[in-house]
Amino acid sequence: MAKSIRKDNRGIVIAALIVACWSGLLLYLLRFPVDFTSPLPYLFMLVQTHLYTGLFITAHDAMHGVAAPGRPKLNRFIGTVTAFLFAYNWYPRLLPKHHQHHRHVATEEDPDYHHGSFFPWYYSFLKNYITWWQIVLMAITYNVLQVFFPLENVIMFWMVPAIIATFQLFYFGTYLPHRGEHAPDNRHKSGTQSKNHLWAFVSCYFFGYHYEHHDKPYLPWWQLYKAKS
């Protein structure tokens, strides 16, 4: 089994595809003529949001060593690049926090958990992960981009998708599965979406199947649906 994992290059290809689609579409959209009366810009914005989410999900796979199985340096490189492209997140900072979440899920030692309602939890989540230097780098990038591209394009296709994707990751990957009380026999203290692979992919790359992820963290996102009974 270990031998087959070492030879599995699919995660590398999928990661490269997500980065290529995100960067290629962004370059196209930054010059796209925006007509606010047309549904097309809003559709593109949602697609770009989905690709932003894919960047972070890929970084998350790297945190579990499954973006490039058996190749730790390449796996870390993929995680570092994809996390950095998503609003300048720093992979070495995210990695220990995420494993702390898995070790202490839904407890006071869980950095992702907050005992409270949605917006206080969301604020706690952002405060725990966003750093001042990310904000500075985002501000610099925003000001540089608007020199070369129309302001509405920068906002609609670079800034807003990142914000929505952050909300998407929190809502489907943290808040929904970990809110409320869980049964004593639920050893992962995690809920899960109903079985619907299309919606699970569209909503958050199958991470609504969250109990399954905690139960089988060695499965990459594109195989997680197989764990859903």
Rank of each mutant, 00 (worst) to 15 (best):
K3L: 11
L137H: 12
E109L: 14
L145N: 03
V19Y: 06
T107H: 09
P120H: 08
F148S: 05
H188A: 05
Y218T: 04
H104A: 01
T141I: 00
A106P: 04
E108H: 12
F86W: 13
S203Q: 06
S229T: 14
R179N: 12
F125A: 01
G11H: 06
P220W: 02
A62D: 05
T53D: 12
A2K: 13
I135K: 09
F149V: 07
E152Q: 13
M159W: 12
F149L: 11
E181Q: 13
P72T: 00
Y211F: 14
Y91G: 08
W158T: 00
N9I: 14
S38P: 05
W90T: 05
Y28P: 00
V66E: 10
Y142T: 06
K7D: 01
W121N: 07
L17W: 10
T53A: 15
F157L: 06
N196I: 05
H99F: 14
I163Y: 04
Y171A: 08
Q134H: 04
V66F: 09
H178W: 12
W199D: 00
I18E: 06
F149S: 08
R71P: 03
T174S: 00
A83K: 09
F84C: 07
V66L: 10
D8H: 10
Y225H: 15
T141K: 07
V136G: 02
T53S: 15
P69K: 12
F119Y: 13
T131D: 11
L219V: 00
H197N: 12
Y113L: 00
F206T: 03
Y205M: 06
N128S: 14
S203C: 05
S23N: 02
Y225P: 05
Y123G: 10
L198T: 00
M1V: 12
H182N: 03
G180D: 08
F56T: 03
Q193H: 14
Y88A: 11
F206A: 10
A83C: 08
N143G: 15
V19R: 09
K3R: 10
F119W: 15
P184H: 05
A62N: 07
A67S: 15
G79E: 04
V81D: 04
